[in-house]
Amino acid sequence: MIDLFRKFSELNILIIGDVMMDSYLWGNVDRISPEAPVPVVSVHKRENRLGGAANVALNIQSLGATPLICSVIGNDIEGAAFLHLLEDHELSAEGIISLNDRPTTVKTRVIGQNQQMLRIDEETDALLSQEHSGQLIDKIKTLINSKEIHAIIFQDYDKGVISQQLITEIVSESKKKNIITVVDPKKRNFLKYANVTLFKPNLKELREGLKVEIDMRQMKDLESAVKQIKTHLNADYIMVTLSELGVFMQSNDQKRLIPAHIRKIADVSGAGDTVIATAAVCLASGLDVFTTAAVSNLAGGLVCEHVGVVSIDKAHLLKESIALK
């Protein structure tokens, strides 16, 4: 496992998807508002962090690999702040396109007494115009053909950056170059990720994407849904994250439910980002799919022990991964 983690530093991982800025207001709650039955948060700290697909990039970086983000932001104050955050974290902005007619997505979380009390979203989920989507596709193809890319992550939040055309063209391009493709899907494009290497929905996304009921007391329900999506997408592997129940992995001829480790959960925000980032680097390093699922699920659990969206600690993950053996 130590040798595997060392290989991470040799990898270049391209991330395509919806980037956002996670803004935090931290404070104390000492009273209820006289204006309405709501708590008053006395703010003592403000903080901006990279979120969405950019948080996946931070996790890739934390694991020792080199991330490259391809996305769009608004040509606005928030977009400028986002670019400054990239610079602060020594992340490249060469895959980022700034648009005048689109806002930068910002999610503001109000936290009192170390508990999230409210989230405020400023965003659009409209699809990119044909022109802007074409610009993004051209930029992605240029990067794929000019750099050695070991895996591509589609980090889809249904905010309009990823389209059917983008998926089809980039998966086709990756196949030509034998690049691994891994997907963290959302509802709008759920059934459009054909021929990818790894498709990783959570249970809620699987239910909504297939419009089926899945009773986790009946394992055959889950197995049937996974078989259906695997056949439809012709994906090599399907990995379904099941929160406290663990993760289910299906390859061509094997399937396995991997139990979760008991954790003291503080905040589940960003856990999916950590799981997909870890899965990408593990697969790109040559790890088998079932151990990849176990290590990725472990990584997702570790970040849930912290309040707010945080990146995985590579040393901590290595220590816990060794204990899996």
Rank of each mutant, 00 (worst) to 15 (best):
I15C: 01
G17S: 03
G17L: 01
V19N: 01
M20S: 11
M20G: 05
M21D: 01
M21F: 05
M21W: 02
M21L: 15
D22Y: 07
S23N: 14
S23A: 15
Y24M: 10
Y24L: 09
L25I: 14
L25H: 13
L25S: 14
L25W: 15
W26Y: 15
W26P: 08
W26D: 12
G27C: 09
G27S: 08
N28G: 12
N28Y: 13
D30Y: 12
D30A: 14
R31M: 14
I32F: 13
I32P: 09
S33M: 14
P34V: 13
P34M: 12
P34Q: 10
E35N: 10
E35D: 11
E35L: 08
E35M: 08
A36L: 11
A36V: 06
A36H: 08
P37D: 09
P37R: 09
V38L: 06
P39Q: 07
P39R: 05
P39W: 06
P39S: 08
P39C: 11
P39V: 08
V40W: 05
V41M: 04
S42D: 12
V43K: 09
V43I: 15
H44F: 11
K45M: 04
K45Q: 12
K45D: 04
R46G: 02
R46S: 06
E47Q: 11
N48F: 14
R49C: 00
L50D: 03
L50N: 01
L50C: 01
